[in-house]
Amino acid sequence: MILIDPPMWPAHGTRFSHLVSDHTLAELHRFAAAAGLAERAFDGDHYDVPEERHGQLVRLGAAPVSAGELIRRLRNSGLRLPARARPERVQAVLTSRWQNLMPGQPGLGAELLDRWSEPHRRYHTGTHLLDVLTALDQLCTPSPPPAVTALAAWYHDAVYTGASGADEQASAELAAHTLPATGLPPDDIAEVVRLVLLTRSHSPASGDTPGALLCDADLAVLGRDSAGYARYLQQVRAEYAHVNEPDWRTGRSAVAKHLLALQPLFHSTVGAARWESTARRNLERELHALAGGGTPVSSP
């Protein structure tokens, strides 16, 4: 259900309501698009709505509830975004990480962060980038990840339109175009490009340690607990809110089958130990729900 609380949150000379769904993010984005709300009004788990739009949205079908009720139902749905995952917090952490990785290159870092913050993104956001970088840390502990591999993580979804294969190609081309100005050696740039392209298949060759690290970090989301995996599915479905349900189920089933067919799914020793069994269990449950007409994007 679409819910809206009273306009009571002051900002920019007016008061704002919060518009949410207690069912799926895809439902929320479809309603917002139909109502003409700008994508930039979305803030992780809700749309900020100025006071003058409140009555119109209620007439369009949003159920008016108290602020407390809205938060309670959002939390119970599993769609409440934790404070640590708020865009402003993620942005600050990523800015610090970029400074450590590429000191003296703040302009390029800002350009990449702008790309990761594009309003049409729902899963492939700065939060996903930070999750990949964090997973790289876990895979490489106690040593830091190789700088070139971390740089490939920054570029691997820098271009995202939802076109599988084409996005990775465009992201690799972006790296090839922008990195020479940083003074990075040509061999390192070529390695960043190779690693970004490898995320199309997530199938590094035997002995390709950098490829295994990046692919495992990119797929670490599959090994989340059930609540985390449900949120991941919510976000991916929201990126394809324009796709009808039957087509979504067909396409997503193909993705799940492809991932389950990867042998192994995780190529590093640490990645396999951390995520393999849980990831396969999550994918099998998702595939079963998709085949049975259930709702695999619902929170447990």
Rank of each mutant, 00 (worst) to 15 (best):
M1K: 10
A11V: 12
A11N: 14
H12Q: 14
F16P: 00
H18M: 10
H18S: 10
L19M: 06
V20Q: 00
S21P: 07
H23D: 15
L25H: 03
E27L: 09
A41R: 07
D45K: 01
D48L: 11
R59G: 11
R59D: 13
L60N: 07
A62Q: 00
S66D: 14
L79G: 02
R80G: 11
A85P: 08
R97W: 01
R97N: 03
W98R: 00
G109H: 03
G109R: 00
A110Q: 14
E111H: 13
W116L: 06
E118G: 15
H124G: 01
H128N: 04
L130H: 04
L130W: 01
T134Q: 06
P142N: 07
S143W: 13
S143R: 15
A147W: 06
V148D: 03
V148W: 02
T149H: 01
D157W: 04
D157G: 06
T161F: 13
G162V: 07
A163D: 15
D167M: 03
S171L: 05
L174P: 10
A176G: 11
H177P: 07
P180E: 07
A190T: 13
L195W: 05
L195T: 02
T199C: 11
T199M: 09
G207Y: 09
G207P: 09
A212D: 10
L213Q: 06
L219W: 05
D225S: 09
S226R: 14
Y229D: 10
A230K: 01
L233Q: 11
E239N: 08
N244Y: 10
E245M: 12
E245P: 11
R249N: 10
G251I: 03
A256G: 09
A256S: 12
K257Q: 15
K257P: 08
L259V: 06
L259G: 08
L265G: 04
R274I: 13
A279M: 05
R280D: 09
R280Y: 05
N282C: 01
L283R: 01
L287R: 03
A291R: 15
T295P: 13
S298M: 14
S299C: 14
